[in-house]
Simulated assay, not measured.
Amino acid sequence: MKALLSTEVGGPDTLVLSELPSPQAKPGFAVVQVKACGVNFPDVLIIEDKYQFKPERPFAPGGEIAGVITSVGEGVTHVKPGDRVLGNTGWGGMAEELALEAARLVKIPDAMPFDDAAAFIMTYGTSYHALKDRADIKPGQTLLVLGAAGGVGLAAVELGKQMGARVIAAASSQEKIDLCKKHGADEGVVYGRGPFDRDGQKELAAQFKAACGPDGADVIYDAIGGDYAEPALRSIAWEGKYLVVGFAAGEIPKIPLNLALLKGCDIVGVFWGAWVGKNPQRHQASVAELLDMYVAGKIKPFVSERFPLARAAEAIKHLASRKAMGKVVVTID
């Protein structure tokens, strides 16, 4: 089978399309013929050894897949050969076949295309966990989403609306804001490209405050970090919740903690991957709820671009450029 492998630390250009033996299903595992693999920001980080997890090389990037089960190991009962499934893998998804702990696999509706399924679990899983479990967002609250046109951001926009929030989408172009409004955002903020000096940060904070209104944002969803974080925090409501989701801007921000004191707010970490491992039953319940929303037509991944496996490195590079909107998917035939 073919797999796109990271054999050395580096960017997408270091990845190599290679031949590997087909995997076998050990006890508790299932082998999946991969049909599609979602591309996410952790794929950019993991090949550069900048992610929380550092797998032993060689490994394939790709943290979420969809495909068909070809075999199962001893003790696996909830899925069987022939089942159409999605799974969160952490890494390994950019390959024609993958052996994965069967507990990570979820059967998908017959009407769900594989590219939708491969674009589903990490973005909606992360954003649902953030808004439901970490923020406990309530109907009528104001939600500010940074990086709103990206994968997790657009999922947060859709889910925020489904949960009754007033959603303010913040992104780097009017085209991206228009996309967010098509997916439910009430208003939008177009911000410039950082880095920002102090005057630039003050101007950005004023933009956020104007969009959120005099009471501020009850919940801020930040998947960007960098110089965008402090201006966003300055727009938070009293006793609001600031969700730390990721750092797509490339820098971990240094937050003046006096702002948390003055705002009486919570700065809340969102580490969905670790939460899934610690709360498997709650995760399964959340996935079931999300799939119900999908079947009802309330949420749907926006797949903007598709790349074949042979060009999967280009897909990661495109995502890293921060030009992608919605989800990028690698398709595997």
Rank of each mutant, 00 (worst) to 15 (best):
F59I: 15
A60G: 01
G62E: 07
E64Y: 10
I65D: 12
A66E: 09
A66Q: 04
A66W: 07
G67M: 14
V68C: 07
V68K: 14
I69H: 01
V72M: 01
G73D: 03
G73A: 04
G75V: 10
G75E: 12
H78I: 13
K80L: 09
K80W: 04
P81H: 00
P81M: 02
D83I: 00
D83F: 00
D83R: 09
V85D: 12
V85E: 11
T89W: 01
W91M: 08
G92Y: 08
G92W: 03
M94P: 00
E96F: 09
E97C: 01
L98D: 00
A99W: 07
E101F: 11
A102N: 05
A102C: 05
A102V: 03
A103Q: 12
R104T: 12
R104H: 08
V106L: 13
I108M: 02
P109E: 08
M112H: 06
M112L: 14
P113F: 07
F114I: 01
D115W: 13
D115G: 06
D115F: 14
A119E: 06
F120M: 14
F120N: 06
F120I: 10
F120S: 02
M122Q: 05
T123D: 10
G125E: 13
T126I: 05
Y128C: 05
H129S: 09
A130G: 07
A130R: 01
L131C: 02
L131N: 06
L131E: 05
K132Y: 11
D133I: 12
A135W: 08
A135P: 07
A135G: 15
K138D: 06
P139F: 04
G140C: 10
G140N: 10
Q141D: 03
T142N: 03
L144P: 09
L144M: 05
V145R: 03
V145D: 08
G147P: 09
G147S: 06
G147R: 07
G151L: 06
V152Q: 13
G153H: 03
A155W: 08
A155D: 09
V157P: 04
V157A: 01
E158D: 14
E158T: 13
E158Y: 11
L159C: 08
L159A: 04
G160W: 01
Q162Y: 02
M163Q: 12
M163R: 14
G164F: 07
R166V: 11
V167P: 11
V167L: 00
I168E: 05
A169D: 06
A170S: 11
A170D: 00
A171L: 04
S172C: 11
Q174Y: 05
E175A: 15
I177F: 06
I177C: 02
D178L: 10
L179H: 03
C180T: 10
K181E: 14
K182W: 01
H183N: 01
G184K: 01
G184E: 13
G184M: 05
A185D: 11
D186T: 15
D186Y: 12
E187M: 02
E187V: 06
G188D: 10
V190H: 03
V190E: 08
V190D: 05
Y191C: 01
Y191D: 01
G192Q: 15
P195G: 07
R198W: 03
R198V: 13
D199N: 14
Q201W: 01
